[in-house]
Design a protein around this nucleic acid. Structure first.
Lengths: 139, 139
DNA sequence: CTTAATGCAAACCGTTTGCATAGAT
DNA sequence: ATCTATGCAAACGGTTTGCATTAAG
């Protein structure tokens, strides 16, 4: 039941919120834009406005249910926050995304912030490259 | 003379291009938005349109004179590309930016790409936080 | 019943583009 | 003289907001 998670986040149980949470949990792709989610809702016959999708995602973000990424480029993408921080390795050809965590990098980041007297709030590390399969296709 | 750099980049020597290049080279702040640059131009009495600032910056980017960053906030910022790679520590309050290079992180990134069979092309690491002075202002 | 959430359309904001004019070679 | 660059204003695309309506508790 999604109701539980919403309640705990202090959000009323409404159709759009439940639906969006379901989509985020069940989608085969982990990183979705507001537009992606909106389209999925429309396709599954839901009557939800794009504005609501944005509002809900923003609320989810504040509630810690979701993480918003500002990928280089146009729109933001959202992914479920399962509490496990990770960074991203992105294939610039096929857009495949591999998530990873590297304790050494994490530690160094903390040290760097500390050395510069910053109270760290967040960080984003994206490594861009070409994945194995794209690499094999002569380009 | 800026003419040389422009020529080498295959760009005609025009007043807006020369002026913008000068600003990027001389500004006390290394990372500037298009709007920042536009304001500086206007303040120094230049008759340049914002659209031109964007066009010129985009050309500079293609020419490798400048690097465009998409930080967390709204707009993009530009900095001179002096060929020295570095990452960024960004204050989310006052937007102060500290540049750094960490050899350990650099090395780990290579390993991670390799482990995942990615041929690395690029990467970006932004650490977001609150700097000392902003931290002291009770918020 | 009371107050918060939604849909719609309009507003926003950074950035881009079309077009007629000014400027570089 | 030729062809690119510029300024202006309008267009754009993602995101936010105002407001009347609907629904949750």
């Amino acid at each position: 039941m999604k109701n539980r998670e919403l309640k705990e986040a202090g959000l009323k149980t409404t159709a759009p919120r439940v639906k969006i949470l379901q989509i985020l949990e069940k989608a085969k792709v982990r990183h979705l834009s507001a537009e992606d989610i909106y389209k999925m809702l429309v396709e599954s016959g839901e009557d939800v406005g794009l504005a609501t999708v944005y509002r809900v995602l923003t609320q989810f973000e504040s509630a810690g249910l979701v993480i918003r990424h500002h990928f280089e480029g146009d729109s933001s993408v959202f992914e479920l926050d399962d509490g496990e921080h990770h960074d991203h390795l992105v294939c610039v050809k096929c857009e495949k995304i591999v998530e990873f965590v590297d304790p050494i990098i994490e530690k160094r980041q903390l040290s760097i912030a500390e050395e510069n007297h910053f109270r760290i709030t967040d960080h984003s590390l994206y490594i861009y490259g070409i994945c194995k399969s794209c690499n094999q296709l002569a380009s």
